[in-house]
Design a binder for these strands. Structure first.
Length: 184
DNA sequence: TCATTGATGGTCT
DNA sequence: GACCATCAATGAG
């Protein structure tokens, strides 16, 4: 089990969002590995994407997205939940992929069918902001054995504020038929 | 099953 | 001061 190479993330964000499906998110906490299979993602396309935090400009919060790919963008939402993203694309292009749901593989307790819930189960919070995903305690890897699956594309969740054009784009991806996907 | 609402605090204006 | 890439509880039907 080893991290995906940085070149995996340094590509088109929509492609990375699709290819992250079926991969394994790994976090080592207190020497114990927590592992989940990624079953749902969303792509955020940067400065032009009015649903993306980075479209509001470079701020302390969005800073990491302007840096090199393969790093974690973690933010607090609604004062209660953390959300995890992987920074994608070349340095200077503030694009990222949001992790929306996992299928439990190892040492996960509680629900993982939502971006806030999966962070809670994986024990991911803002202390991991900017963390390199090519590290030995927090990374994404190929699964031990891969299964065949179909990908479904749908509009992203909770981004109506971005206007009809961006809110309706099919930038949410999930594994068809998987019971851990956050919403039908 | 669906629509509504409260919790709770960082971020940006 | 307004908004928010969420979730669970509530109540109506």
């Amino acid at each position: 089990m080893q991290p995906l190479p940085r070149s995996f993330y340094d590509r088109d964000t929509e492609l990375v969002a699709r290819e992250l499906l079926g991969k394994q998110l790994v976090h080592r906490v207190d020497g114990e590995l927590r592992v989940g299979r990624i079953v749902e993602t969303e792509a955020y396309l940067g400065v032009l994407d009015l649903a993306a935090h980075s479209s509001r400009g470079r701020t302390p919060r969005t800073e990491v997205m302007f840096g090199p790919p393969g790093h974690a963008y973690v933010y607090l939402i609604y004062g209660m939940y953390n959300c995890l993203n992987a920074v994608t694309g070349p340095e200077g292009q503030p694009t990222a992929v949001l992790f929306r749901a996992l299928e439990p593989v190892l040492n996960l307790e509680g629900k993982t069918s939502g971006p806030g819930l999966l962070c809670r189960a994986m024990e991911i919070d803002r202390s991991l902001y900017g963390h390199d995903l090519l590290s030995e305690d927090f990374f994404i890897s190929e699964p031990a054995e891969s299964e065949e699956f179909e990908i479904v594309a749908r509009p992203r969740v909770g981004v109506d504020y971005a206007g009809a054009d961006w809110a309706s784009r099919l930038l949410r991806f999930y594994i068809k038929g998987n019971s851990h996907v956050s919403k039908k």
